[in-house]
């Protein structure tokens, strides 16, 4: 059975992963969630290398939530790499970072981010954002063809 296109969380902070997962579940998002806990792992998953070679088991995500502060490769490096890959350049990538600095925001858009969201401090606010993601990216937006 072909796996459903998951949502890929690129997030090194296990707490954030916990809250994201919890919020996704609370807000009724039933899509599978894959987690890459650093830049290298993200690139491995998206490139289909190593243990992620099997695309049926590890299909391309329909949405990437990308943190910027990551070990090995930063989120911006991962984003730049994604846009250089022929197979990934149309992949919807939403930056999900604690930084609200203009420099980061501008860099992210320059490198081809589809959206930039700032991680909220408030759990309720996180729920609101996740709900917005569901409504917009998962239910409203028409995504590109993923191969």
């Amino acid at each position: 059975m072909a796996h459903e296109h998951p949502i890929l969380l690129v997030e090194d902070n296990s707490d954030d992963v916990f809250f994201l997962r919890r919020a996704l579940k609370t807000k009724g998002i039933n899509a599978p969630v894959e987690v890459a806990s650093d830049g290298r792992a993200a690139m491995a998953y998206l490139g289909g290398s190593g243990k992620f070679a099997d695309r049926t088991k590890h299909p391309l995500p329909r949405l990437v939530l990308l943190d910027l502060q990551l070990p090995y490769f930063t989120g911006l490096q991962v984003l730049g790499w994604i846009r250089e890959q022929a197979a990934l350049k149309r992949l919807p990538v939403v930056i999900f970072s604690s930084s609200s600095q203009a420099r980061d925001i501008d860099s992210a858009y320059a490198l081809g981010a589809n959206s930039y969201l700032v991680k909220p401090t408030d759990v309720a606010e996180l729920g609101r954002i996740i709900e917005a993601i569901r409504i917009y990216w998962l239910e409203t937006n028409h995504g590109p063809t993923l191969t």
Binding site: N13, D16, F18
Partner: peptide, 10 residues
Amino acid sequence: RAPLRAMYGY
């Protein structure tokens, strides 16, 4: 802020 958010979130 990350650990604070965690404390709060949990």
